[in-house]
Every structure is written in C-alpha cells, then in structure tokens.
Amino acid sequence: MARTRPRPAAANEASALQAALAAEHAAVYGYGVVGAYLSGAALTAATSDWVAHEVARDSLEAMLRSAGQQPVAAAVAYRLPHRVHSSAGAMSLAVTLEDRVATAYLGVVAVTSTRIREFGARELLATAMRAASWRGRTVAFPGFPAGALHTARG
C-alpha cells in the first residue's frame, strides 16, 4: 500500500505555476487595454500576443489541475502600472506586462521537475521575444528585474 505522500518539491512547483498563472491573467487583461490604443500592424501584433497569453494561461491551468491544485482565478480588474492614453503608452504597457510574465517564468525555471522547468524556459523565451519586439531592443537578462544581476559591462 503506497501512501500518496506529496513530494517536497511539489509545493514549490505549484506556487511557481500559480505565480506564472497570476501574471498571465494580468497580461490577458492588460493586452485588452493595449489593443484598444493600437491599429494596423501593431494591433495585429498585440492581438497575436494576447492569444499567446491566453494559450499559456490555459496550459498553466491544465498543469495545475493535473497536479491536483485549484488554479488561481483572474481578478475582475487590474490596476495598470501607468495610465495609457496613446499608442506609445500602450506599447510601454505591453513591455511591462511581458517583463512581469518573464519574471514569473524565471520562477518556474527554478523548479526541479524537468518537464515544468523546460516549459518555463520555453515561455520565458517566448515572452522575451515579445518584449524585445515592443521595446524595440533586446536586453541581456530577460526575466531578471533590472539591477538584479550586477555585472561589469565591458
């Protein structure tokens, strides 16, 4: 009779996935605002990114349910990090949303389960690509908050 004892790592995995899910909920909400201020090619890009976040959200919910966890729910509304009045403001909001999602996936990469770690790395890469596109330039350490890593730049 094997008792189902929760693995010690499982709690960390669940909390990392829940944090990523919360960030994805916020991104899905935020891209609704981003899209409202864009048109043309930028709107097409925002729509495609919006869908990507919905897909990631659904994957995270499925992973949590299969681990016997109740996925965190989306909030009814989110306070935006800054007011959006223009397309420039919308793009800057998209960058912020992606950066927050990236940081959450960095937490997922730190879990010990290979499958979940690789999922986190894939999503980190995807969010870094979207952030670079909205930002118009690349960064050295996607997911790490600015200044978290002190390096001598040469």
Partner: peptide, 9 residues
C-alpha cells in the same frame, strides 16, 4: 534560461 532567451531575441 535567461541567457538563452536573450540569444533568441
């Protein structure tokens, strides 16, 4: 993972 993401961008 972060370095790999940066390289992909």
């Amino acid at each position: 993972a972060s370095v790999a993401a940066s390289e992909a961008t």
